[in-house]
């Protein structure tokens, strides 16, 4: 008998807290249905700007994907030709595969972040904020600038990586200009840049786990390893899910690092390029904007599908407390 009353009580108070504007809104509703012209002064600049620069362009891109662009401008409607051309274009599946490999490598940063976060967020851990800073620094660096540094680090003749490998008698490749190795090199930098973000989100999730759970487990004699797999990881799944979604979406947006670390003239580019790179190349270097628009639609479709898929399977592994 008591329980429902209690629940109802908390419900109303929560309602009151979150929907605080309600009472006054209801009061004003008596006078008029809206706040007059004032709201429009607040929203019109943004709504018009977003309409002009984002909403209408989206509609235009859909239309462009059915057109062929002449050399001197002017778009001709060609139906589904760009899409059938895409099916026959072998660089498309190659670039999707490249993007998947890139994303898979960057996703390795998530288990790494879970382990690092569980170490940093230990109660009474010294230097915790120093560690947070160190790991987060790469995330705020400019990809164009840091890509140049990494290109030097990967240099085949005198880069420190190949020097290090030579200590073990390994003759390192020309990383950024050899197919296969180039993608690995770029993805490693992607992992390096995103680790701090993953760590930030997962640390925040970790701090929400009630300490009592660990205390109880410790009293029951569970080892730290056991606590990690039985408490930390399961209760972190919502955060892990979130960073997975973000990593996959940004993986399919790969452009900056690829462009800067490899360069337009790189002969390994065809085997390494991402969908966004093909889009850029077609739209602004080849000036084939109709085909580029169709590739844009493909990118949207893939991201939407992958995200929907992840939301679908989340209930199999994500625990919401």
């Amino acid at each position: 008998m008591k329980a429902p009353v209690l629940t109802a009580g908390t419900e109303t108070s929560r309602d009151h807290a979150t929907k605080a504007p309600l009472p006054s809104a209801a009061r004003r509703k008596g006078k008029s249905k809206s706040d007059g012209f004032w709201p429009w002064l607040f929203v019109v600049p943004t709504v018009v700007g977003i309409g002009v620069f984002y909403l209408w362009p989206m509609v235009q891109t859909f239309y462009y994907s059915f057109t062929k662009w002449g050399v001197f401008g002017g778009a001709k409607f060609i139906g589904l030709d760009n899409y059938t051309r895409m099916l026959a274009d072998s660089s498309i599946p190659q670039s999707i595969l490249n993007t998947l490999i890139y994303t898979a490598i960057v996703l390795l940063g998530i288990p790494a972040a879970v382990i690092l976060a569980s170490l940093i967020e230990r109660p009474g851990m010294r230097f915790a904020s120093l560690y947070r800073t160190l790991y987060f620094i790469p995330y705020v660096t400019m990809p164009a600038a840091v890509g140049i540094v990494w290109r030097l680090i990967y240099n085949g003749d005198f880069g420190p990586i190949n020097w290090f490998l030579s200590l073990f008698g390994i003759h390192g490749p020309y990383w950024t200009s050899t197919p296969g190795f180039a993608l690995l090199a770029v993805a490693t930098v992607g992992l390096w840049m995103s680790l701090g973000f993953n760590l930030l989100i997962i640390s925040a999730g970790l701090r929400e786990i009630p300490r009592e759970l660990f205390e109880a487990a410790e009293m029951d004699g569970a080892s730290r390893i056991r606590q990690f797999f039985s408490i930390t990881v399961p209760l972190l799944t919502p955060s892990i899910f979130f960073v997975t979604i973000v990593t996959v979406i940004s993986g399919f947006q790969l452009f900056d690092l690829l462009y800067v670390m490899m360069g337009k003239a790189n002969l390994a580019m065809p085997q390494t390029q991402s969908l966004v790179y093909i889009f850029y190349n077609q739209a602004f270097l080849q000036n084939d904007k109709g085909y580029a628009a169709a590739i844009g639609i493909l990118i949207l479709a893939i991201i939407a599908l992958l995200t929907a898929f992840q939301f679908r399977i989340q209930k199999r592994w994500v625990n919401y407390v």
Binding site: V47, W56, P57, M58, Q60, T61, Q253, V276, A293, I299
Partner: peptide, 21 residues
């Protein structure tokens, strides 16, 4: 709803018309 609908859309879908503008 209309304004927020663009949040998840990748920038490639805006880039060409934005360039034209």
């Amino acid at each position: 709803a209309l304004v927020l609908s663009i949040i998840m859309v990748p920038s490639q879908l805006f880039l060409i018309p934005q360039y034209q503008i």
